[in-house]
Every structure is written in structure tokens, then in C-alpha cells.
Design a protein around this nucleic acid. Structure first.
Lengths: 348, 348
DNA sequence: CTGAAAGCGCTTACAG
DNA sequence: CTGAAAGCGCTTACAG
């Protein structure tokens, strides 16, 4: 019978290293933290003791006593870690944090202001050094007393309300305006807007872009062509039959969010309308190029947004005390076919 | 000029609460931790002081002194947080952790054993209570001394080697066997295998399933039809021209991973072969149902895998000391058209 | 260049 | 039922 290897029972401490190396705890601390001014012979014996004991500093304990209280961990509160936009953003944050030797806590806020507040409490009570937040709440004044001074907060995807902070945003209004202008350029005059919950700021900006495009082209705004509150693909698909039954149905759709685009595409394909109804979606998605026709989209760049947010954050942690900055990451129109379908020349 | 609200400068401590409530620190500690046996009047005055000062316990400090040293944080090392499989798994872990009031650290190992080891060190030095690991390394014996006793480790997606631990795995071999048997049932005799890096255990299992299916149907194994090492979509697409130039090219493809399936589909569509070449992919992906033909897949269930892993983990944290368990989450064949294309009846 | 003492915010182990 | 003292693993603020 073989004996399973035993796990390390108790982690050795600074004190154990000091005893083995025959120096004081303070000297071990200096060596471990790379401070200058320790005799080379002592450095060597400390390093040898560290190796022998396989000593690992307790980051938690050191942050407790340090003046700056830094834990080398930052927290990200994103919309939903399972959704591709949040996942890519998260990955970009991880990459920058990793370069700085900092670890990342993550949580999904799920469009729930209560959940957002619970997570903020959980992360601040673990003394995260900084927060990245894609808020679900409509007002973040509460952060003033929830987040201690000296803990930077950077907003991503959604702008802060009632709280001064850096922010990284996509160009939602301009992207939407461009999508709708593109449809108008292809001859469409009846363009439907299918949007997410109207309470979500990005959804509002995209709706505003839709309206601006109509206005600047001298086109009337028809509320019958507008549907808000579509918070998943099924609901989006379910909204289309009513639009199609209008006396003057739309000839083009602007779907203002990923899942809405997918739901609309499912409906169009089931109804055999995929080569008749023009569609442009906000947000790119994998395989959009493989569908027939390919799906024209306004693409965001979550990786660029994540990197920019993380860089603002680390600049703050490095001591930048300038006024809050807002970085806008541009969107891109990707032409693939569905947004270039002409107005059908039927005798309706 | 209005004054911006000031942020809380210093967090109040247990001591501050004790002073305000006129009791000892120990009594405050008892109330905060919900321990019984405190006079109701003292409970009330402590609770009032907590409210007035907006006191938040410092989780980090309490874990330092506690005997169990629990930090109420667990770490997940996944393949790549940006990839949908890892992202869904991560989200499922988050949900279970959230139910337990536990926070989640996450990191991507990126098929790099070095990165895996760095992350393990980072997480253990932050004293995570437990680890969830989808390893990139081929051997995890090193965990024996890297992970302290009493810190549970649960493997997901890949089985441990050289280390005793719980594991949650997909049924890779059986799923692959079933995919290939399905193609054989539809008349195919020349079935290509397109796989990821052969060093990845799941890739090996899927290859083994491919071989077993051929064997059990009395079909020869032809190495010309097998390509390993396809680690992204472009590489997968690039492998197909050579297969098509074989004297007897395949009539069906088994693509053993998500990105490989996508790469193959891009090639087939560019070559106009999407209605000629049968294909079954391992891993489902969004919109597989909207392509024409729909893409037949072997679907994994990352959400079920994440939940199962988290439940094993919390059972260990709750004191379960039984022998290691391995949970296998079954895969599902989803028939959509591409896997049911017949063998073309050409005169080749 | 080096170390002894005090303290970060909390819990433990006691004593009353 | 309550609290004073010690200590978790480390760094600070000194003194030499």
C-alpha cells in the first residue's frame, strides 16, 4: 500500500523564516519586499530559508497593516458574465490586471439594482482596491458613502449618474444613428425600432440615435414602428407579428441589441422573410457572416472598452488625481448584406 | 458653486462601534456575528451604533484571526473567460457561490501550464478557501505542495493527473462515439476527424471516441483522414483543402471542438460544399439552428458542469471528507440537418 | 544596516 | 451574560 503524499499542513510564516535564517522578522520582511539596504549575506540566508520552507507571504495580512491597505485585487461588476459582451470585457480587464500583478473578483448584476448594491458591499467589505462597474441602477449616488475615499471607481458601458467617476462608453447614439441612416440610404422609409428595456441608458441612447436619423432625413416618427422592453430573443421574435400586420408594415428593422437581433432573425427565417426584410443589429455576434444573407451590424469593441477601463483604473491607483475622464470607444458598421436589401417592389 | 459630497474617509472599526455603544469589542463581535447570549438591551445599542456609523466588518481581518482562516472567496481557473464555454461555466459557479455568500476570483489559464501555476500561487497566497481548476498542465502533482491541506480542489472539464480531487467531466468519449456512429448510420464511410492539440485530454477522449465508433462498425482507421493540432478557426479552415485533394476525400467531418466547427463551416460555405459535406461538431453554439443546413452538434452543458463543480466544492467546505468523486455530465446529440446529409451519389 | 515594540481589525481563550 | 488580554501575519515608526 502506497502512502498518498501529504499536503502542507500549516503555511510557514515570516516568523518561521526569521528563526531559520537567524535574523529578525523585519529583515525577512525587507528581503521579501525587495527593499534595499540589507547586507548581502543576510539576503542570501533569508532567501535560502524562504526556499527551504517554501514560504509564501500572506497578502491578506500584509494589506491589513500597510498604510495604503492595498489588497492587489480589484472587482468587476458586469452585466452578465455568461453573455459574450461581458465575457470579452471581463477577459480584457483580466489581461490588464494580470500585467499589474492584480487579481480580479467578478460578479453579474443582471439588471438588478439590489444585486448591484449587494455586490458592491461584498467587494468593498473584502477591501478591493478599485471597482469597475456596469451599473443596473439608474442612480449611483449611493456609491458616495458605500465606496471609501481612495477606492477608484470606473464605469464601463454605462455612464455614472449622481457620482463623479471615470467612464468608458461605446458610441451608442452615433452607432444607432449610422445604422438607421444606412437603411434610409438604401431606400427604406418604414424602419422599425426594436429595443431593450427603456430604463437602460444604452437602450435610450440607441433609441435617440434612431430618432435623430429620422429627423435629419426629414422622415416622420411613427410610434407604431417602435417596440421597447424586449429583454430576450423570444420576446423580440414575439413582437414582430404585430408589426407585420400594420397597414403599412416596416420594410427594415433596426434591432438595438444582440439578443433582439437573434430573435428577429429567427422570426424572419421561420416566416421566410430573410431575403425581404432588411435588418441591421446593434452588437456583432459570431457567425453573423455565415448566415444568408450575412447580417449587417454596428459592432462594439468590448475588448477595447475593457482595456481602456482597466487603464484608467490603474492610472488612478498609480496616483492620478486629475478630473474624471470619459473615454468613448467608437462603433463600426460592418456591411454583410442584410442591411443592404432594397425595399421590395410589391403592389401593396 | 456646489460642494461634491465627500466620501467616507476612514471606515469605522469594531472599536469605534464599541466606544459608541458603550460595550466591549467582544460584545460587538458577538452581535455582528449573530452569536447568542447577549442581553437584548446591549444588542439594541450595538445595532444602533452600527447603523449610525454605517459599520462594515472587515472580512479580511476577521479571517486572519479565525481558526478556520476562511475568506469566503473561492478561485476559478478556467480555460479562457472570453470563450462561451468558460463564460457559462463561470456564471454557473457564480450563481452557486452567490447562494453561499461566497465571492469568486477568476482567471484564464490559456492552455499555458506556467500561467496555471502563477494563478494557483496568486490565489493561494490570497488564501482562497477553495479552487476550481480546468488545468492546462498535463500533470498536477505540484498541487500537493502548492495547495494547503484543507483547501478543496475541484477539477472541471479535465480530469486530475497525479493529484486526488473531485472532478466534473463531460462525457467526451461517448459523445464523440455517438457523433461518428450517427454519420456512419447515414451511410458515410470516409469520415474525417478534425481535432484540437492532441495534448489536451478532452481532445484525446474525443479522438478515442472517433476510433471506437469506427472499430465497432468494422470500419478501417485511415490516418490520412485525421488532423490534430487545430487550435483556432483559421487553422481548421486551412486543413480542409488537403483533405479534399485526397484520392478518396471524406464525405463527412467530425469537428471535435467549437472553433474547429466554425472554421470548417466557413471553408464549406466558401467552397459551396455546405449541402454536400456532412458535418457534426462537438459543442453547441449560438445560431447553429439558423444556418442552412442547421448544424448538428454534440452539445455539452457547461451550466450543469459549473453547478455540479460548485456543489462538490461547497460540500467539501461544509466538511465532507469522503473519497474523491467524479461526476460525468452527459452530452446530447442535437439533430439539425448537417449531420444527416447523405453520401453524394457522384461518379467519382 | 538591523531589530524590538507596537499596532492593523478582528477572534480566541479565558476569567469572572 | 460580559470583558480584558493575547494573538492571527504582517508592516510601521522608531531607536540604535
Amino acid at each position: 500500500m502506497t502512502t498518498a503524499p501529504r499536503r502542507a499542513a500549516r503555511r510557514p510564516t515570516l516568523k518561521d523564516v526569521a528563526a531559520l535564517a537567524g535574523v529578525s522578522m523585519k529583515t525577512v520582511s525587507r528581503v521579501v519586499n525587495g527593499e534595499a539596504g540589507v547586507a548581502p549575506s543576510k539576503v542570501a540566508s533569508v532567501e535560502e530559508a524562504v526556499r527551504q520552507l517554501d514560504y509564501r507571504p500572506n497578502v491578506t495580512a500584509s494589506s491589513l497593516r500597510r498604510l495604503d491597505g492595498r489588497t492587489a485585487a480589484v472587482a468587476a461588476l458586469l452585466e452578465d458574465l455568461a453573455n459574450p459582451f461581458s465575457a470579452e470585457l471581463h477577459r480584457a480587464l483580466e489581461d490588464v490586471a494580470h500585467e499589474h500583478g492584480v487579481l480580479l473578483f467578478a460578479g453579474s448584476v443582471d439588471e438588478s439594482p439590489e444585486r448591484e448594491k449587494r455586490l458592491i458591499r461584498a467587494f468593498t467589505s473584502r477591501r478591493a482596491d478599485a471597482l469597475i462597474l456596469a451599473p443596473a441602477s439608474s442612480d449611483q449616488t449611493y456609491l458616495t458613502y458605500e465606496v471609501p475615499e481612495g477606492t477608484p471607481v470606473v464605469f464601463v458601458d454605462r455612464a455614472p449618474v449622481g457620482f463623479e467617476a471615470d467612464a468608458v462608453l461605446a458610441d451608442n447614439l452615433e452607432g444607432a444613428r449610422r445604422a438607421v441612416a444606412h437603411l434610409i440610404d438604401h431606400g427604406h422609409r418604414r424602419i422599425a425600432f426594436l429595443g431593450d428595456l427603456a430604463a437602460i441608458p444604452t437602450a435610450r441612447d440607441r433609441f435617440e440615435g434612431y430618432q435623430q436619423a429620422l429627423r435629419s432625413h426629414g422622415m416622420p416618427y411613427d410610434p407604431d414602428l417602435v417596440v421597447h422592453g424586449l429583454d430576450d430573443a423570444e420576446r423580440a421574435a414575439g413582437a414582430l407579428p404585430a408589426l407585420m400586420k400594420l397597414p403599412a408594415p416596416p420594410t427594415a428593422l433596426f434591432t438595438a441589441q444582440n439578443d433582439i437581433t437573434v430573435g428577429a432573425l429567427r422570426y424572419l427565417q421561420a416566416a421566410g422573410l430573410q431575403r425581404t426584410m432588411a435588418i441591421i443589429g446593434f452588437d456583432d455576434f459570431p457567425l453573423a457572416d455565415l448566415l444568408r444573407p450575412g447580417v449587417t451590424v454596428i459592432a462594439q469593441d468590448p475588448t477595447a472598452m475593457g482595456r481602456a477601463a482597466a487603464e484608467l483604473l490603474f492610472a488612478r491607483l498609480a496616483g492620478d488625481v486629475g478630473p474624471s475622464r470619459t473615454v468613448v470607444i467608437p462603433t463600426r458598421l460592418i456591411v454583410r448584406g442584410s442591411g443592404e436589401l432594397p425595399v421590395p417592389t410589391t403592389t401593396a
